Simulated assay, not measured.
Amino acid sequence: MNTPWRFAEDHYAGGQPTPAHLAELVREGVRTVINLRAPEEPAEYDEAAEAARLGVHYVSLPIAGAADLDRARVREFGQTLDDARREGGVLIHCASSNRVGAMIALDATLNRGCSLEAALKRGREAGLATLEPAVVALAENEGARS
């Protein structure tokens, strides 16, 4: 677990949040939680139930690793992010934020037309690390601009 951080206006990234993290983020204006963890990844509490208790919209969009980075999931993530932005702040998390950064970078380049270089910078700010080669491969395969 790591403490979620703001990587863009009203956008937070992090590893698995605690109930206390969620409560604090709600006070900061977060209205949607996007969980990228796979269902089989262990969690110490029922995050969906805690989000509901706090009045926060909860979305599970499992990304287990590089093999799950594909165009369809990137489109779905982009739409989910757009929906979340209309409601207020958003927390996107996985276990370490590496998958968060990967999806942020792919969304930026494939859904929003950012250059790959700018998208990777955004992704790194949100936690992109070891998944960067997979992000670059998919972006280039999908014709992202340099």
Rank of each mutant, 00 (worst) to 15 (best):
D46C: 02
A144W: 12
R145I: 00
P42F: 07
T18S: 15
A51I: 13
G113T: 01
L120T: 03
Q79S: 10
A139P: 04
F77Q: 09
V90E: 10
A118W: 03
A84L: 14
H11P: 00
R6A: 07
A64K: 15
I34A: 07
P4E: 13
L106P: 01
A13N: 10
R145Y: 01
L110D: 07
E87P: 00
V135Q: 12
C94V: 03
L81M: 14
G127V: 02
T109K: 08
E142A: 10
R71N: 07
D46Y: 04
R27P: 04
G65Y: 15
I104E: 08
G127T: 03
R31A: 15
V135E: 11
L25G: 08
V30T: 10
T32R: 05
R85M: 13
L25A: 09
A38M: 11
L54P: 01
R73N: 15
E117S: 08
S115Y: 06
R112E: 12
R75V: 13
P19K: 13
G29P: 01
E44D: 14
L131E: 05
V59E: 04
A13G: 03
G88H: 06
L36H: 09
F77V: 09
P133Y: 14
R37V: 02
R85L: 13
P133I: 07
L61C: 05
S146V: 04
N111P: 00
L120H: 06
E50H: 12
A129K: 07
D107I: 01
A13T: 03
L138M: 09
G78L: 11
V136W: 09
N141G: 09
G55V: 07
G78Q: 11
A102R: 09
G65N: 15
C94Y: 04
Q79P: 01
L116W: 11
A8M: 10
C114A: 09
R112V: 02
I104A: 04
Q79C: 03
R86S: 14
D82M: 14
R71W: 13
A67C: 06
R37P: 01
Y58Q: 15
R145M: 04
D46N: 14
E28Q: 15
L54Q: 14
L25F: 12
T80M: 14
T32P: 01
N98T: 01
W5T: 06
A144V: 06
L116E: 11
E44W: 05
Y12R: 12
A64F: 14
A64V: 03
R37Q: 14
V100R: 01
R37L: 11
E132P: 00
S96E: 05
Q16C: 04
D46F: 03
P4F: 01
G14M: 12
A67I: 11
Y12L: 10
A20W: 06
Y58V: 04
E28A: 13
I34G: 08
G123D: 03
I63G: 11
A137C: 04
G101P: 00
L69I: 13
R53H: 12
E41P: 12
A134M: 08
A118C: 00
V30H: 15
C114P: 00
N2C: 00
T18V: 05
V136Y: 09
A49W: 09
L138T: 04
N141P: 00
L131R: 10
E24Q: 15
A51L: 10
L54I: 10
L25Y: 13
S97R: 06
A64H: 15
